[in-house]
């Protein structure tokens, strides 16, 4: 039986009818056409599908859509402001070469955001710990770590 969920998506209230077995990722990608959130494994193991739920990172591929009801969800599409200005983390990713194929990037950027929101000056260890749930096959992570350091003013 379909149920309606209401949540704040990238700052705007939305209301969607969903089947109870859908994951948040399916609702975002298939129903709301926000394809910036990627599916790399569908099992919680790669972080490509990372979104922020009430400011905290979750793997949307194994997160029941119904649990988003009443919450606030941010996807990569919500990170740029209304005028299309990039977030400082996005700018740093570009500037430091933290992007290659880009498939891990949306999830990685959101993990970086959650990390920095919580800890404005993370050590390198803390950065590595914070993004360890986001696999990247292309970059070897080093330029990503540099980019995050740069945003935090280090």
């Amino acid at each position: 039986m379909k149920q309606t969920i209401n949540f704040i998506l990238n700052g705007e209230p939305v209301s969607v009818e969903v089947e109870p077995h859908l994951t948040l990722l399916q609702v975002l990608r298939d129903k709301l056409e926000l394809t910036g959130t990627k599916e790399g494994c569908g099992m919680g193991e790669c972080g490509a599908c990372t979104v922020l739920l009430n400011g905290k990172t979750v793997n949307s591929c194994i997160f029941p859509a119904l649990e988003a009801d009443g919450k606030s969800v941010m996807t990569i599409e919500g990170l740029t402001d209304g005028q299309g200005h990039l977030h400082p983390i996005q700018k740093a990713f570009i500037e430091y070469g933290a992007i290659q194929c880009g498939f891990c990037t949306p999830g990685m950027v959101l993990s970086a955001k959650a990390l920095l929101d919580e800890n404005t000056k993370p050590t390198e260890e803390e950065i590595r710990h914070g993004i360890a749930g986001n696999l990247c096959r292309c970059t070897g992570y080093l330029q990503i770590i540099e980019a995050i350091k740069a945003v935090s003013g280090q």
């Binding site: 599916e39 990039l86 570009i94 992007i99 949306p106 950027v109």
Partner: peptide
Amino acid sequence: KRIPKMDAEEKVTGKAVYIPD
């Protein structure tokens, strides 16, 4: 020169279209 990738903006904003999209 350390010039950023041309498609970096598209990718970092989630606008880049991959086959699954």
